[in-house]
Design a protein around this nucleic acid. Structure first.
Lengths: 178, 178
DNA sequence: CATCAATTTCTGTACTTACAGAAATATTCG
DNA sequence: CGAATATTTCTGTAAGTACAGAAATTGATG
């Protein structure tokens, strides 16, 4: 597939953003490509469109699947795997937040909980103890709240957040549960 | 300074987290150290405590200052710079979100706006156009809302978010404006 | 204003991560 | 079940990033 200029720039920018947030550039690019394409694509087409090796696509797709951002579909009369992503921004956002949470936040909470139930904690400076406790509590509050928010339909959420109705119509497509 | 075991593990974990979010490991470690220490430290002490080169501390501190996470203070009768960070989790969170916003979100909004005011956009597939518009709108809604939230005092925010009062007391120290 | 301490910038090296291409494996179809 | 095609895993190289140590600069003090 030959990319049109704006799509190409969108995809490149997305790759840049990915890098800055700890996401492999190619992974981010592939996701952006599938997002803009809005249709299932097979590995070879992805590779040639982005100018990367097919093996790289394979690895990156696996990564995207582990985030549940991409699913495999099959087209009648074609034995190759085709890959697609949701075109719903809100759903994508939700999946990314959930992925980050599982990979980084939850383990961090475990580590901090470990510290608090460790008798050695008493040896630390009073202030440090206090701050470790506060850090844990902060993270827990934030994740609890974000869990609740992500469970809502976007329209409901928009209302809750007190954002004007004119904007919320963007999300008319709806997605997610509840 | 000799780190006590739990502080050390906290700092190392923070460094790991930093890496995963696109923040230099040493930068994250230094910040964690200053956070737990809760007092100003000078470059040499930071370097020896963390086992990194002094030059590395210099660069990292500059980075942290550009995020407004660390400020320089001077102690009477000591010509060396000393560095400290806030011990208020909420304030730190606010500064990090604001930094990310300025560095990554705002430029992305500019790029997307550029696409929308570019006549070439008409050449793109209808669906792609639509999705570019939706992406921009989504990001704008999110940042508008986060701006509003971050301007609130933590207690007010907690109430808004409907989180029980028992938790919000963690943030009694207060910070930020409004 | 010369000396000394502190700090920053520069430079080469080490480490890490990304990735292409090759090889191996799996899958589909006749 | 064998051939053809698709996919994944492996491996070496390349690119990028982090960092120590050296050199240069800044700035304070007598």
């Amino acid at each position: 597939m030959e990319l049109k200029p704006i799509s190409e720039r969108f995809i490149l920018h997305w790759g840049e953003m990915g890098s800055r947030w700890g996401v492999n550039r190619t992974v981010a690019q592939i996701h952006a490509l599938l997002y803009l394409a809005g249709r299932p694509m097979e590995a070879e087409e992805i590779a040639s469109t982005l100018g990367v090796a097919r093996s790289n696509v394979s690895t990156s797709i696996k990564e995207l699947q582990s985030w549940k951002l991409v699913r495999t579909v099959h087209l009648k009369g074609d034995r190759r795997d085709h890959f697609e992503t949701s075109t719903d921004v809100w759903e994508l956002f939700r999946l990314i937040v959930e992925g980050r949470r599982q990979r980084e936040i939850d383990p961090t909470i475990d580590v901090l909980n470990g510290f608090l139930s460790n008798p050695d904690l008493a040896n630390e400076d009073e202030g440090a103890q206090q701050r470790i406790r506060e850090t844990l509590e902060f993270i827990q509050i934030l994740t609890t709240w974000s869990d609740e928010m992500l469970r809502l339909k976007p329209e409901t959420l928009m209302k809750m957040l007190g954002i004007g109705a004119k904007l919320s119509q963007t999300f008319r497509k709806g997605s997610s549960s509840e």
